[in-house]
Design a protein around this nucleic acid. Structure first.
Lengths: 202, 202
DNA sequence: CCATGTTTTGTCAATGGTGACAGAACCGCT
DNA sequence: AGCGGTTCTGTCACCATTGACAAAACATGG
């Protein structure tokens, strides 16, 4: 009896779909390509397409999302007695930052793609990031109040993505700049979050 | 030639649609009610429904969104030399908080409604709040760096909504509790944001 | 009242996305 | 090869949302 959910055939169609999508996107643009076209080009049904990818646009953000996995792993690897901001900083910089992908996102944002769509996705990633931080905080021995944990996590995520937003709106986007912006922002937060027991008095 | 875009007839159908939607939602639930049913019950076409409301779920969050308008107004009314956190606090508390509506949102979140849908909307409101704060910050004379403005705004919004999330997850939700949570959170941020020139060193 | 321009609706047709159910392909085993 | 249980696909049906274009309702100057 088979029990591995990731069969060979499944993987084949997944690859075929991704390939077809990439080609079509490049050829005629993202919005101009319908999900049905992708499915057809890959030799499967529309329904099957949606069985492999939650949405058409997910094909664009795949890199982005896997980055989140890395972040989670990097975060658990951090010592529990380390200041949160430091952990987040370290985890953030453990990202296999793909300038290519990020620049693509930034470019899409200004041009073809429905901005709402991409902004919505960024917000989703931010929320996931916050969730990851919440999990990390709750792993610590000294169980804090729920308010502390949630607000701290959200504030950190907001700071990181705020820096990223600023970066994305720039003309020139270098990896060094992004690192600098993130670093500066986190350093600023660090002062408030750590050494004075912020968020611990409620 | 008529030029007022808000005709009598238009308003009539809008009201009819809202009434029909409210009734149907109450009778058979939100998700179980299709947009077409609402339109039909109001005596118009589906397309017309979407001409008056951007989406089916918008009918649920109307109160929420108008609250945002109030926030914007309350924010501009604040003196420009006041610390940001104080302005935000004051504006937040100027909300015509409708416990009814908020409780409904909180209730929906746990039950019938597609959580993604409602969470997504909350994120949208949070983003709007951040934008409002950005505008307010930019109105000040001392033009700060873009990073400062964006990050500060996002962090404040994140803090407020973090408090709200905690509140929403509680069993009992009183107005006093929400106020207390928001107040505590903002006070915590206040220390970091103001008296030490946070976010001003980049 | 009528001609005319405007606003609002209706109609038609797509696309994105999803649940339910049945059939096809596949896996490990004999 | 043949079998029995899984997994993957195809088919069908449905809902949410939107653009394009035409018909209907309405307001107003003449």
């Amino acid at each position: 009896m088979a029990r591995n959910p990731q069969t060979v055939r499944s993987e084949r169609t997944r690859v075929a779909l991704r390939r077809a999508a990439t080609d079509l996107f490049a050829a005629q643009g993202v919005e101009a390509t319908s999900a049905e076209q992708i499915a057809e080009a890959a030799g499967v049904t529309l329904r099957t397409f949606y069985r492999h990818f939650p949405s058409k646009h997910d094909l664009l953000f795949a890199d982005y999302d896997t980055g989140l996995q890395w972040f989670r792993k990097a975060l658990v690897a951090r010592p529990v007695d380390e200041p949160v901001v430091e952990s987040v900083r370290a985890a953030i910089f453990a990202f296999p930052y793909d300038v290519q992908a990020l620049n693509q996102v930034a470019a899409f944002r200004a041009t073809e793609l429905d901005p709402d769509r991409i902004v919505g996705h960024l917000r989703q990633v931010e929320a996931d990031l916050a969730d990851a931080i919440v999990e990390h905080l709750e792993r610590r021995t000294e169980a804090s109040h729920r308010l502390d944990v949630v607000v701290t996590a959200r504030v950190l995520a907001a700071a990181v993505f705020g820096a990223m937003e600023v970066w994305m709106q720039r003309e020139e986007r270098s990896m060094a700049d992004l690192a600098e912006l993130s670093h500066a922002t986190l350093t600023a937060l660090e002062r408030g979050l750590d050494d004075r027991g912020m968020f611990r008095h409620y």
